[in-house]
Simulated assay, not measured.
Amino acid sequence: MAEDRKPARVVQTCAAHPSQWDAWTTDGQYLYLRYRHGQGCVEWHPGPGDDADTPESWDEGRSGLLTEWDDGTGGGVIGLEDFLVAAGLEPAPDASVSADGPVVNS
């Protein structure tokens, strides 16, 4: 996997239905990770927040879909390790992972 696509910082924003995380790659790219109804997706956006995922950001090429899949389970909860494997992502060796809370630059 390209080094610039490896999550270096991951913050779990929901541990229930759906499982979701905010992540930043080694080069600072923001990724939105979500798993709901057995479907996982990884999207890239300018950053987290309400204005990151707008039709304009997609139309202007500032947002996009990195990968998506359906595992056929209809599930809504998945652990980060299993999510990353299913998404084909490998975390950076020194990745920082935290649960719900403020995001602090490391």
Rank of each mutant, 00 (worst) to 15 (best):
M1H: 15
A2S: 07
A2D: 07
E3G: 07
D4S: 13
K6Y: 02
P7V: 14
A8E: 14
A8Q: 15
R9E: 15
R9V: 14
V11I: 15
V11H: 05
Q12M: 07
T13L: 11
C14Y: 06
S19K: 11
S19C: 12
W21F: 06
W21N: 01
T25H: 04
T26E: 15
T26I: 13
G28W: 12
G28M: 13
L31W: 15
R34T: 01
R36W: 09
G38D: 11
G38Q: 05
G40F: 05
C41R: 08
V42N: 04
E43G: 01
E43N: 08
W44F: 11
H45F: 02
H45Y: 05
P46E: 15
G47E: 15
G47H: 14
D50Y: 11
A52R: 12
A52H: 08
T54Q: 04
E56A: 04
S57D: 11
S57V: 15
W58G: 01
W58Y: 14
D59C: 07
E60G: 03
E60W: 04
R62Y: 13
S63Q: 07
L65D: 00
L65P: 08
L66D: 12
L66S: 06
T67M: 05
T67G: 06
T67Y: 09
W69D: 13
D71M: 02
D71R: 03
G72K: 00
G72I: 09
G72A: 03
T73N: 04
G74N: 06
G74W: 04
G76F: 13
G76R: 10
I78E: 08
L80G: 02
E81G: 06
E81K: 03
L84W: 10
L84M: 03
V85Q: 15
A87C: 14
G88W: 14
L89I: 15
L89W: 09
P91K: 10
A92H: 06
P93D: 09
P93N: 02
P93I: 03
D94F: 03
D94L: 00
A95N: 04
A95H: 12
A95W: 11
V97I: 09
A99W: 09
A99H: 03
V103E: 10
V103K: 02
N105P: 13
